[in-house]
Nucleic acid binder design. Sequence first.
DNA 1: CGCATCCTTGAGGGCCATCAAAATGCGTGG
DNA 2: CCACGCATTTTGATGGCCCTCAAGGATGCG
Lengths: 249, 249
Amino acid sequence: MEGTVLINDMPLTGAFLAGRMRERISCEALTLLEASVGQPRVLVDGERLIARGERATSSAILLEGYMLRVIRRDDRRFIVSVHVPGDFVDLHSFALKRLDHDVVAAGPARIATVSHDRLREITETDPELARALWFATLLDASIHRQWIRNLEALDAPQRIAHLYAELHHRLGFVGRSGGRTLRTPFTQTDLADMCGVSAIHANRAVARIRELGLGEIRRGDLYIGDWAALEAYADFDAGYLYGEAGPSS
Amino acid sequence: MEGTVLINDMPLTGAFLAGRMRERISCEALTLLEASVGQPRVLVDGERLIARGERATSSAILLEGYMLRVIRRDDRRFIVSVHVPGDFVDLHSFALKRLDHDVVAAGPARIATVSHDRLREITETDPELARALWFATLLDASIHRQWIRNLEALDAPQRIAHLYAELHHRLGFVGRSGGRTLRTPFTQTDLADMCGVSAIHANRAVARIRELGLGEIRRGDLYIGDWAALEAYADFDAGYLYGEAGPSS
DNA sequence: CGCATCCTTGAGGGCCATCAAAATGCGTGG
DNA sequence: CCACGCATTTTGATGGCCCTCAAGGATGCG
């Protein structure tokens, strides 16, 4: 897989847009980006990278683990987006300056940051890289649109199935799709807040997926035999992820 | 209102980001953008500006009317986004090249287009304008996130109330909020497809808003006395629209 | 081994889907 | 001005998904 080679070459940004438009970005641009990223650091489970309304001065790329975009309101939590390694988790804050939501780690997460000053330089000197960064944020928007559709069209078990199908593809892009097991640190409460249902109902939804023989979700980890069956059940269509190849498994 | 002056100066792009970050964009950049836009043209109700998967070569700014982003699947229609005058309706297609959804007119709409070649020139020569265009697409993403939250947190009448509250603010940014009446060409079926409910239930939701004395929706037009009451009912908080001032009324 | 967190199960009720059908505009043409 | 056709809006009835309240079981950690 070509993505893997690039990942080995560039330990920090090697997964950025892998499997998507990365292959069309020049080597110079990619090298420039890699050189712009600071030392990695680790966030613990639940640690907040940036809070709603806070003025951001740097953006982070996720190297390892999962991160969530969270809207809080009246003690309720709405998870509007999930991020996997290779994602520029808060690149939105570069153009927006302040965010409308929090960004937090789900499980331990390793990140590396780029200052906004540096990003400004990059985008002004390298239009190709600027468009790639823009593209990355629009991928997030496309995923948001799909979630809107999912909430309108799917019931709870289908939403959870769709979530895992999507993660499988996105992890596949960056060479991390693990065959018959998809490991996540998500509790059923996390799944509930992603899918817009109660934790109790998320539990029943997980049970339903098991009953249907589509897979087994235990402590966030999905054990599955037939990805195609899960995707069909979830009415999943990978087009909105803008990948150039299918998932690796 | 300062936006109005700029709108008079620039008939095509004068409303672009008005009330948001427009005031921080240099006059040169705004003039460049205005000069880059082609002749306006009118779309009829339901006319499709760009189809899912189609390779786009230009992007359009909405001058008059409403446009929708639509995901189609199995004869069902999901409206994932609504656009008002001043919005760059398919700027996403510049960075994405092909879109994951359709963009269609709701009622008659007047638009003006910019070729992607021209946009490429602009973004490469004017980093300030490039960031403004990027910002505009991230506003769409922020609105998507709010819709996700709305679908998860609000019932049908609240979703409809939230939709109109949002439109009121967004129209206010561009100097088009009309006081006690908000005119739209939306049928109850349109409202249903925006809110993820059946047309029948959208009808009952509209009736509920009337019963509660919050407003009267007739043929898409909202007649209202107390915007604050409607916003409170819809749990509306304008922060996600990134405005610099409140709505005009 | 005690405690906290997470997962599981049951019962009653509300929001919303679907099927079916009627009433209300609204533009067109007689 | 009226008749007609059509889209849109309205209303009723039945059922399913998911909510909340309540309580019991499993799992992991110090």
